[in-house]
């Protein structure tokens, strides 16, 4: 895997964004001070977004198959293949989200919410674990670093908090600020993660497209966070979030580019 497969990068990234959204949604449902109806409507939109992200991710995963006509075979080897297990977890999560969305349409009662939150959350975490196992092969030395599983934890939190922030920016600015601060902290972790990756590949001193984006995001974060704390909506707001998300995406590209196969 010397040349990374962009379809695969998009697949892992979108899937993790979806899982992150589900987990951070649970926090929103409890912390929001808006009315019950309002919370459940926003919650339902977030759920729909998570579902769409997951489906899009799955479609991208098909793009990296060279013979998609046989794709149904991918579940054949649950016994020993981490990839089969990953796909199974992905499909289970897909059905949980679908069922949840349908249930949500009929009822806004709290009990099924908690059950579905736990179900989806657990299968989401399981999915991310299986994804890590899929990629951390003994033959791919570049991915056999602690930085790699770390990046699979950072991405869900980063993209999840960004999407929820955009949902709440107008309606619940006070809670949105908290999500944004959380986002900023996770972005710092993403930066550290990228530096660890680079240290492993001895490219710390090299200035390239990755460094340029991280540097730009870091600079723009200062006015953005300042204006957020002052409760003003300015353009740098959007720029920072987008830049930071692009950085995290590029970090994934970087990770899958420098896999250093055993041979």
């Amino acid at each position: 895997m010397e040349k990374y497969n962009l379809a695969l990068v998009v697949f892992t990234w979108l899937t993790q964004a979806s899982v992150g959204l589900i987990i951070l949604r649970a926090i929103y449902m409890r912390r929001s001070s808006a009315g019950d109806d309002k919370i459940y409507i926003t919650g339902r939109y977030i759920l729909l977004t998570a579902f769409i992200l997951l489906v899009t991710g799955l479609l991208f995963s098909f793009a990296h198959l060279n013979y998609p006509r046989h794709a149904f075979n991918a579940l054949n080897n649950i016994i020993s293949s981490w990839m089969s297990r990953e796909i199974l977890a992905e499909i289970i999560l897909l059905f949980i989200l679908l069922a949840w969305y349908i249930i949500n349409g009929f009822t806004i009662k709290k009990t099924p919410q908690i059950i579905m939150e736990i179900l989806a959350g657990l299968s989401g975490v399981a999915l991310i674990y299986l994804m890590v196992r899929t990629y951390m092969l003994p033959s791919l030395q570049g991915l056999n670093t602690p930085a790699f599983p770390l990046s699979f934890i950072i991405t869900p939190l980063l993209s999840g908090s960004a999407i929820i922030y955009f949902f709440l920016r107008k309606s619940e600015p006070e809670l949105a600020i908290k999500y944004k601060l959380f986002f900023a902290i996770i972005f710092l972790f993403s930066l550290i993660n990228h530096l660890i990756f680079r240290a492993f590949h001895h490219t710390l001193g090299v200035f390239n497209i990755y460094s340029a984006f991280y540097l730009a995001a870091l600079i723009i974060s200062v006015p953005s966070l300042y204006s957020t704390l002052k409760n003003k909506n300015v353009m740098s707001d959007v720029i920072f979030l987008n830049l930071a998300i692009i950085c995290d995406f590029l970090n994934r590209v970087y990770a899958l580019t420098y896999t250093n196969p055993a041979l």
């Binding site: 895997m1 060279n66 046989h70 991918a74 293949s81």
Partner: peptide, 24 residues
């Protein structure tokens, strides 16, 4: 059965399985 995902090539420490571009 093969879907041409290339996962075997990643797993193989000797880079032995290769994609046949003609058959996918």
């Amino acid at each position: 059965k093969c879907i041409g995902c290339g996962y075997c090539t990643w797993a193989c420490p000797y880079d032995a399985p290769k994609l046949d571009k003609r058959t996918g």
